[in-house]
């Protein structure tokens, strides 16, 4: 195996154009190195991109927020723009591994690794995230809900690098949350993770728009449009939440694994959904601070 360091996005792109599928991009390495050391991946070339500064950081302009692919979880959890505009993402990022993982692990890495349990995926899905992928051929944009194709399988082509993620900020009269279930209070791979973003009418009464997404309930993180539709027009009443939960059960296929049983994951769905709806509505009404 070879190791090369890229200092700019152009360099990454030209290396990928040359080497393509034999290269694996290495940012913080918290997934890539583990997989490499376990023998799960055997790239011919590691391209170290961690120090490409232009790919890190958060920008807010024209009603969109752009997140550089190399922005670390630690930055996401602390950044004031993220905390205001995509609070669920900050909440999720603060729950990825321990401080050591958050300090070097990046959002781009989390998405491109495409773990079914990727914590940053659900809050980005509910923020209508769009990914910018760059190659020698140019730049294209892929909505996040079309990016994940399966477990560790994405729409990123081997010659592309994920450069940034554009998200829609939380509108007014809206609330957002990411609820992560683990056995312990930290250091967990999500047993289930659920993100919700609800927009209420001006009276703070009726749900006018709903976004829901889960991880660890299927081979890939999922948006849940059927369940979303069942919440729109509701006041978050138990019947509506129950109907939406049923819709989630129909679109997901949780499994038994070493962390939890499928039956538990299914049991969690209606409870997490009810809790998420309650929290989002309270936050939308300003009755409760967003996660801090």
């Amino acid at each position: 195996m070879d190791f090369r360091r890229a200092g700019t996005t152009d360099e990454i792109v030209s290396i990928l154009a040359e080497v393509g599928p034999d290269a694996t991009l290495l940012a913080g390495g918290t997934d890539v190195m583990v997989q490499y050391l376990r023998g799960e991946i055997a790239p011919k070339l590691l391209v170290h991109i961690e120090q490409v500064d232009e790919l890190a950081g958060v920008d807010e302009a024209d009603g969109r927020v752009d997140i550089g692919a190399l922005t670390t979880h630690l930055t996401l959890s602390e950044d004031p723009v993220i905390r205001r505009t995509v609070p669920g993402l900050a909440e999720a990022a603060s729950q990825v591994g321990g401080h050591q993982t958050q300090a070097v692990g990046t959002v781009g890495g989390n998405l491109c690794n495409a773990s079914p349990a990727a914590d940053t995926a659900p809050p980005l899905l509910v923020a209508d995230a769009e990914l910018r992928l760059r190659s020698a051929a140019g730049t294209r944009t892929v909505p996040l809900d079309r990016f994940f194709l399966g477990r560790r399988h994405t729409a990123r082509r081997p010659d592309e690098v994920l450069t940034s993620i554009a998200v829609r900020p939380l509108p007014s009269h809206a609330g957002e949350t990411y609820l992560k279930v683990g056995r312990r209070g930290a250091m967990e791979v999500a047993i289930v993770g659920l993100a919700a973003r609800l927009v209420l009418d001006d009276d703070g009464d009726v749900v006018t728009d709903a976004r829901l997404a889960v991880c660890s309930m299927a081979p890939r993180p999922l948006r849940l449009p059927d369940a979303e539709r069942l919440l729109v027009g509701s006041r978050g009443e138990p019947e509506a939440v129950a109907a939406a939960a049923d819709a989630v059960q129909e679109t997901t296929e949780p499994i038994d694994d070493a962390r939890a049983r499928a039956a538990y994951r299914r049991r969690l769905v209606p409870r997490l959904l009810a809790e998420a709806v309650r929290l989002c509505m309270r936050r939308a009404r300003g009755e409760e601070e967003s996660w801090s």
Partner: peptide, 15 residues
């Protein structure tokens, strides 16, 4: 300046 787990950090990333 960043605390990290050296067991999964590539040595050459620390060049």
């Amino acid at each position: 300046g960043r605390p990290l787990d050296a067991c999964i950090y590539a040595a050459h990333a620390a060049d």
